[in-house]
Design a protein around this nucleic acid. Structure first.
Lengths: 200, 200, 200, 200
DNA sequence: CATGAATGAGGCTTCATTCAT
DNA sequence: GATGAATGAAGCCTCATTCAT
């Protein structure tokens, strides 16, 4: 009588979660469909009920990454404070988010590797960075206009910020013992912001 | 001391070169031993004469990357100039080298992805960064000691520099049209150096 | 005696019809149970409610073929006319029926192929031919007895007639543009009948 | 020193032969690549060294069928005898050949089934019949021109002959005990030839 | 040293069949 | 009766690796 509730979205999420876990552990190539099925506590066939292929699962994960919301970051712009402080605050938030993404780096790096060869992956990843970059860019632009910062190309500096974050993330992956994302991020960003400030 | 360059070494290099070309084009997983053999104008059997396995070829490529010399960089330290200028100079050299590595990024990123799961790869890659990092670190240290720079943790700043470079490299891979490695690298480094300088 | 046409029988027919359509389009192997279900506007589960398996559906189709009545053909024997004319008339009816079976040839040929390996299928198909063959045989026998035909083995000639029909059907499938079943059937049968007639 | 002789043609034939044996036994669908490999005393991989896919093997078998030579049949035309005798002789040869093809009927009928859905298969099979048909047609045409036969459409009669043969082949497959290809073929052809002759 | 035919384990995927709802 | 999500056995095919020549 009661129509069975549509479980398909739930299943898809369940499979995506399992796939992320397995891909993280083994990488795209080493991970077997069977492994993902087991992790999801489903049969192989069930996976193919919800996804067309292994690649389709990977694509769904990519979307899952890209689709992250970053609304909270917007808040940083609304504070009443010097731009440099806003930037530091924003930086802190970004680093916090990165910290939380450390576990996903194995997958993210597979995407980066794929991006070197596939335009669609490049595009998707760029979308991933764009919101943050635009936020930074706007903020820096504000600093320029308010006279707080020396005249620079806001876009370029925004890219430099992102680059710093991304680079630290990579180094943190390679050497988590030595690299303290938070500390080193703050340090680097601080330097850049100091460099931006007009010398009084 | 130097390994005598017998035929064997020549063949190995020939194979490594072919493997790099093919892996760059296709990635580790998509590349077939057959493809590498063809690229090297050898038979599959010949490859197995010189390398134990596909993984062995990959490992050799890794060594090939790591083993690159960076002696020229050392020169930067010997100039007679303000540290900030030396740093800028060094930066330029590093960026130039990176520029030349852009083609190898597909392989490098596969290594990064592997590094997230394999300690040996992590170690090897760290070795790759270490010399540059130490060079930067020493230079910054000099700046501190000479009073040219504000007191900072030289190690940390060196890492921030490397991170900036690495991050730009990633972004350049994703969006080569927009990202001008040289310009943006100079910009970012310049900001940091400005931030380092003691305000007069 | 007649099986009461309950819902069950109706559903079975519905499924058989769908299966014939799909098998015609795709063949036994390429056709999926899912395809048949869709064609029948039923669910896969429903199909399994009425049939034990895919093979069971195929078997039912086989029965469906075999069970076709050919009562009308019997009429041909009752005409008052020379046997040769009766034969021509019968031939026309057979060819007309074949014409109408052209659409089912894809399935019929799958059965023929199966017949080469399965005795039960062979038996069933023979039953399919037998009535027509017996009809022909009886008619020819009449011709012999009436002295209208030269002495021949009626059974053998009946088989030759059937063979001619079947052969034309095959050729019509392979080359419908060129093969005019009706015309060529009439032509061949006419020749044989002429050959049967006693030369005056 | 001695270059290894090229075994590829040999291997292909070996595989084709094995495939014919297995397909005859099991049919295209039921036959496993593994079965063919075992029959050919090769590994699965070896099959794929010489053929791209299972379908490729089937296509090669098709070609193998089509490629049969029928030169000997041509001889029948050169005899100095009445056309009707030549036709009987030709008939005998065709039936003999068919007799020898009985074992291949399981495969041939799979092709026929496929032909109902695939134009390329139809074309190939038509090529298979064409030479024989043309031979028959020419012979009948001779009979017409010499006044030995009543005026008929030689093409049509040739098709009827072929149809008779094919039909008998089918019936022989279904009921080998009853159907004597040779006898019934001779009988039917004889009737038709009698029908062709001008009544003296 | 070099070749390339041969091997066979193992992956992805399909789909007939089942069964909880 | 009917549904369609779920199962899992089994097939085709790939490709790293071996080895006779």
């Amino acid at each position: 009588m009661a129509p069975r509730p549509d479980v398909s979205q739930e299943r898809r999420n369940q499979i995506i979660a399992a796939a992320i876990a397995v891909f993280t552990r083994l990488g795209f190539h080493e991970a077997r469909i069977e492994d993902i099925a087991k992790e999801a506590k489903l049969s192989k066939g069930a996976l193919y009920w919800y996804f067309k292929s292994k690649d389709d699962i990977i694509a769904a994960i990519m979307d899952h990454f890209i689709g992250r919301e970053i609304v909270e970051l917007e808040e940083a712009l609304k504070l009443q404070a010097p731009i440099s402080e806003k930037l530091m605050k924003l930086n802190g938030m970004i680093v916090d988010e990165m910290q939380s993404m450390l576990d996903l780096m194995p997958i993210l790096y597979e995407f980066y590797a794929a991006a070197t060869r596939r335009k669609d992956v490049r595009k998707a990843l760029l979308q991933y960075f764009r919101p943050t970059q635009q936020l930074l860019s706007r903020l820096i632009q504000q600093g320029l206009e308010s006279g707080e910062f020396v005249p620079v190309d806001a876009e370029v500096v925004a890219v430099d910020f992102i680059a710093l974050y991304e680079g630290l993330l990579l180094l943190a992956v390679l050497d988590p013992k030595t690299i303290d994302l938070k500390k080193m991020g703050a340090h680097g960003v601080n330097l850049m912001i100091e460099g931006l400030k007009v010398k009084s």
